[in-house]
Structures are given as structure tokens and as C-alpha cells.
Computed example of a mutant assay.
Amino acid sequence: MSMTIYHNPKCGTSRNTLEMIRKSGVEPQVIEYLKTPPSREELVDLIKRTGLPVRDILRQKGTPYDELGLGEDRWTDDQLIDFMMEHPILINRPIVVSEKGVRLCRPSEKVLDLLPKDIGSFTKEDGEVVSSGAPDA
């Protein structure tokens, strides 16, 4: 199974997601999107494939979101995408692409539905344990 992760190595959620993918036996294509941002066409396609509104892909924390006034309703989806192209840090992460779909994996356990196999339990960097298996009956 091939997978791609749009990754920021400075982000704990992104690191946890990457490790869960690797624990499933897959070595994904890792795109550090701050160094190699997607093209506008790729970004539009990714957003469409997540099924989320453009606004849900905008990252607020640690970005120029407030300075740019992006919380205001006056911006169209195209304008919001323009801002993400100009400031890739505004693209929320991690976005994972797999044969099973495309997800914004926040929280990181959202990646579990995309993995080729159950990874059992996984301990996140903050100590939280997540499980991909069915709950005990």
C-alpha cells in the first residue's frame, strides 16, 4: 500500500501520525510541505478529497491567521487557498493520502482508518495511548 503524508517534523501530531503509519508496516512518501508546498492544483485536490470545507484546512495556531484577518467571513474559498499558497504554514497538518482516502489527521488517530492493518495500541509522544483494535467486549 502506498501512502503520502504532508508532514511538519516540528509538529507532534504530525510525528505521531507518521509513526502510526510506519507501525502499520508502510513507509510513506513524506512531503515536508513547508519546504515543498503542494501546487495550487494539488492543494485544491487534497482539500476536495478530504471532504472538508477549505476553512477547516486552515491552521490558526502559530500562523499569521489572525494578522491576516482570516477569521472574518469575507474571504472566499479561492482567497483562503491563495493565503495558504502564500503562507504554507496555514495548511493544517498532517494530511495523509492513501488508497483508502484522504484525511486531515487531527487528532493523529484519524489515520487509523487509512492503515492497511491494525497496529494495536500506540503511545503518543504525550503519553496518551490509542488503540486501533476493536474495544473489548
Rank of each mutant, 00 (worst) to 15 (best):
D82T: 00
L90D: 14
D78L: 03
I89V: 12
E67K: 15
K35E: 14
P94L: 07
D56G: 11
L34H: 02
I31T: 03
I95S: 02
Y65T: 02
E41L: 12
L46N: 08
Y33I: 03
I95Q: 02
R59S: 09
D78M: 06
L90K: 01
L70P: 05
G71N: 09
V54C: 13
H87S: 03
I31Q: 05
R55Y: 05
N92L: 15
P94Y: 09
T76I: 03
M84Y: 07
D78I: 01
D45P: 07
F83V: 02
D66E: 13
E42G: 00
P38H: 05
I81P: 03
H87D: 01
V44D: 07
N92K: 15
D45G: 08
D56L: 10
T36G: 06
Q79F: 00
P53A: 10
K61T: 07
L34P: 10
T63F: 08
V97N: 11
T36N: 11
L68M: 00
E42V: 12
R74W: 15
Q79Y: 05
Q29Y: 03
M85P: 05
V54S: 01
W75V: 14
Q29C: 12
P28G: 12
I91C: 00
K35I: 10
H87I: 00
P38W: 13
P64N: 04
D73Q: 14
P64K: 03
D66L: 06
D56C: 11
L90A: 09
I91D: 10
P64C: 01
L70W: 00
I31M: 01
D45K: 13
Q29G: 15
I81A: 09
D73T: 14
T76K: 14
P53W: 04
L90H: 09
L68S: 02
I95H: 01
L46H: 10
